[in-house]
């Protein structure tokens, strides 16, 4: 609410000064400061969750898109998406996969913590650097989950799953482009107006 008001009051001000002082303004002053809308964030999370209910995850190296999106929002919007969100969606995946309750929840929470912990450092970097930083987070979270899984099942599932975090890191820049799309369009509109 507060943030929205900030935006609305700032927008006319910048437009007024744009004519005279546009040359002095840094080119990239505002684009990434503007928060994504809460509705959009939840829409993307729920959509990826619904997609995760489909059987494509039977393939073991498949990237966990839900985890990827939740980690992405944890990094970019830590005020709205937190570890609790990750935990709850993890539980839902546990029930869907009919595995032990808490397995996915733990992995999701760990990855979300990684994103939250790296947030102050990574916020200002581009998506490729973010992806490189998030790769070890995903690998670590996933391997802790796999270790617990192996402990409860008494069997080791092989190494194929290691591809999953790699795919997730590779997809990170793409997710960055897609999930920041509404903002980018706004920025373009502003640029055209000026």
């Amino acid at each position: 609410m507060l943030r929205k008001m900030d935006n609305s009051t700032r927008a006319p001000a910048t437009r007024r000064t744009a004519s005279s002082l546009s040359s002095l303004e840094p080119i990239d002053a505002s684009p990434f400061k503007r928060p994504s809308s809460g509705l959009f964030i939840w829409f993307t999370i729920v959509l990826t969750w619904l997609i995760s209910l489909l059987p494509w995850r039977l393939w073991q190296p498949a990237p966990d898109l839900l985890l990827l999106v939740i980690a992405f929002w944890c990094l970019n919007e830590p005020q709205r998406v937190s570890m609790v969100t990750a935990f709850i969606f993890g539980l839902l995946m546990d029930v869907h996969d009919s595995t032990l309750l808490g397995g996915h929840a733990l992995v999701y929470t760990l990855a979300a913590y990684g994103a939250v912990a790296l947030q102050p450092r990574l916020r200002h970097f581009n998506s490729v650097i973010q992806a490189i930083h998030m790769l070890p987070v995903f690998v670590l979270a996933d391997s802790i989950g796999r270790l617990l899984y192996a402990w409860t099942a008494g069997e080791w599932a092989g190494w194929q799953w290691l591809w999953s975090p790699v795919f997730m890191a590779v997809l990170w820049p793409l997710v960055d482009i897609l999930l920041h799309m509404p903002q980018r369009r706004l920025d373009d509109g502003d640029a055209g107006a000026v």
Partner: peptide, 11 residues
């Protein structure tokens, strides 16, 4: 949360 998850796993 991690403690809760591990507790859930064990239980």
């Amino acid at each position: 949360l991690a403690l809760l998850a591990v507790a859930l796993l064990v239980v």
